[in-house]
């Protein structure tokens, strides 16, 4: 397709400026010395220091870590088994496909209120554990999607060869499927972990009202609503850097197939 090179370059420069200027400004201001969060008064790391003194933030970060680790563990286990199970079927069940696809397209707010109603009416006490139960729902769908993408290019005769040589299904799963799928599973787990760390809406609805079960995105949200402070800038940058590092790692493991068409 032929388009003038100057036109394509202009478009790309404008789009990338739009995408990256807001983020860059945030990063820049996180090193601001002054107390005003938006006016530059000189370079300093003091707000990074003060962030690590903030007990509320530290507790929220700890909660987030627990939620993300536990939900990623279950999601990876269930999602991987699901992916293998779906791909070894001969027939594609439309129902099952819809069920697996749904967590990725249902708007967060709908899933959030549905879970809140469900937990309340079944007398579940709300807390971090309900956030974990909820996060596994969409996390397992994403792990499943990443592992399935790998399975589509998988030579199934390798698994058949294992059975042919005398291995039972579980031995084949453990000694052949898992090692071959490991990069995709790790990538899927990292993706799930990132999503869980960043997830706000579902956590907000299912964490309950106790201050003890506030997660980091919930903390950020309430800080933003309260007003702009230099600490938010710092926190925002740290959260962003964290997701980008995790995602780049996932991309590495999966050889680029997360964004690839």
């Amino acid at each position: 397709m032929k388009a003038p090179a100057s036109l394509t370059l202009t478009i790309l420069v404008l789009v990338f400026a739009f995408l990256y200027i807001p983020i860059s400004v945030l990063v820049g201001l996180s090193f601001n010395a002054g107390g005003m969060p938006t006016a530059w008064t000189g370079f300093s790391l003091k707000w990074y220091g003060s962030l690590f003194q903030n007990q509320d933030i530290l507790r929220a970060a700890w909660n987030t870590l627990i939620v993300a680790l536990v939900s990623t563990f279950f999601a990876t286990l269930l999602g991987t088994l699901l992916a293998i199970g779906v791909e070894i079927r001969r027939r594609r069940g439309r129902m099952i496909e819809t069920l697996i696809f749904a967590p990725m397209v249902i708007p967060d707010i709908v899933l959030a209120i549905a879970l809140l109603s469900f937990f309340s009416l079944t007398d579940f006490r709300l807390g971090l554990h309900t956030v974990i139960l909820s996060h596994v729902v969409f996390n397992l769908a994403f792990v499943c999607a990443v592992v399935r993408a790998r399975l589509r290019v998988f030579d199934w005769s390798v698994a058949e060869a294992s059975a042919d040589l005398g291995a039972s299904m579980l031995v084949t799963l453990w000694r052949v499927m898992l090692p071959v799928l490991a990069p995709a599973i790790i990538a899927g787990a990292l993706l799930a972990f990132t999503l869980s760390v960043d997830e706000f809406i579902i956590a907000f609805f299912t964490a309950g009202s106790s201050r003890a079960s506030i997660t980091l995105p919930m903390q950020i949200y309430s800080m933003i609503r309260f007003g702009i402070t230099p600490e938010i800038n710092v926190l925002a940058v740290l959260v962003m850097v964290f997701s980008l590092v995790t995602l780049t790692l996932a991309q590495r493991f999966n050889r680029g197939s997360l964004t690839g068409p």
Partner: peptide, 20 residues
């Protein structure tokens, strides 16, 4: 009889070697 219980082995067209 299941494949893993047969005294029969198959050499696959793709060879199906365990890559790892």
């Amino acid at each position: 009889l299941a494949p893993n219980r047969r005294p029969v082995n198959l050499m696959f067209q793709s060879y199906a070697l365990f890559p790892h």
